[in-house]
């Protein structure tokens, strides 16, 4: 087995430890920033749907603020956004670089995109369901949790999977501010050192990660669609 690995990936043996470290960094970025971004994105998407003119609790000021912020942040390319957010990151997590320094940038880079998709998903929900819940005397809070979110689980899962793919993409870019991760590994060894086998390894690992995520996503969609 070891012989086989050494044959197809001659550079793997000495870099094994570093590769593993980078893989864990990517998992941490996904785990921490991804989870925070997911909740913030859902919250922002729900806010947009509730406060818009036709929503159940219209509030033009909040809506316009959220709506514009999303557009502004989304129009900044991620690599520039990262640099732009360094002061904010110092303020929140105490550092603007390294793994911890990537969290703020990753959250800001994902939330607007994800929130828009959540907004779209919730807007697609049959307004009759919301009306029925209102007629039953549900409060806005209950409508959010037991109608908007509960009834949209398959669609939310779908957009989570879509966002996950592009999120993995930006975690690779985060390597540029020293966050490490598989992207950083691929640049250093695959690009700067020219180890083709390490590029292939990185691609394979990322593909497997995304496939596993999508497998569970699809399973959840299947289970919750009736």
């Amino acid at each position: 087995m070891t012989d086989f690995i050494n044959t197809i990936m001659p550079n793997f043996e000495p870099l094994k430890g570093e590769f593993w470290e980078c893989f864990v960094q990517t998992l941490i970025m996904i785990g921490v920033s991804g989870t925070i971004a997911w909740f913030l994105g859902v919250a922002l998407g729900v806010t947009l749907v509730l406060t818009r003119k036709t929503g159940i609790t219209p509030h033009p000021l909040i809506f316009t603020c959220c709506d514009r912020s999303i557009d502004v942040i989304r129009s900044v390319p991620f690599i520039i956004l990262m640099v732009l957010l360094i002061p904010l990151s110092r303020l929140i997590v105490g550092t603007g670089s390294g793994l911890a320094g990537s969290f703020v940038a990753l959250v800001f880079g994902t939330v607007p995109f994800f929130a828009r998709q959540i907004e779209q998903v919730l807007s697609d929900l049959d307004p009759g369901l919301v009306e029925a819940a209102q007629a039953m005397g549900f409060s806005p809070r209950e409508i959010v949790f037991s109608v908007y979110l509960k009834e949209s689980i398959p669609a939310i899962t779908r957009v989570t999977m879509i966002t996950f793919v592009s999120f993995v993409g930006i975690t690779a870019i985060a390597g540029a501010i020293g966050a490490g991760g598989l992207g950083d590994f691929a640049i250093r060894y695959g690009y700067q050192m020219g180890y083709r086998d390490m590029i292939w390894l990185t691609v394979a690992v990322i593909l497997i990660m995304i496939s596993i995520f999508q497998f569970f996503g699809n399973l959840l969609i299947k289970k919750t669609t009736h």
Partner: peptide, 24 residues
């Protein structure tokens, strides 16, 4: 007010043209 109104709505059933059942 809204809270009192929601209470009253519990005492008023409503049905719709397109049923509006929760599909999940």
């Amino acid at each position: 007010d809204d809270a009192a109104l929601r209470k009253v709505r519990q005492g008023m059933g409503m049905i719709f043209q397109h049923f509006n059942l929760m599909p999940s």
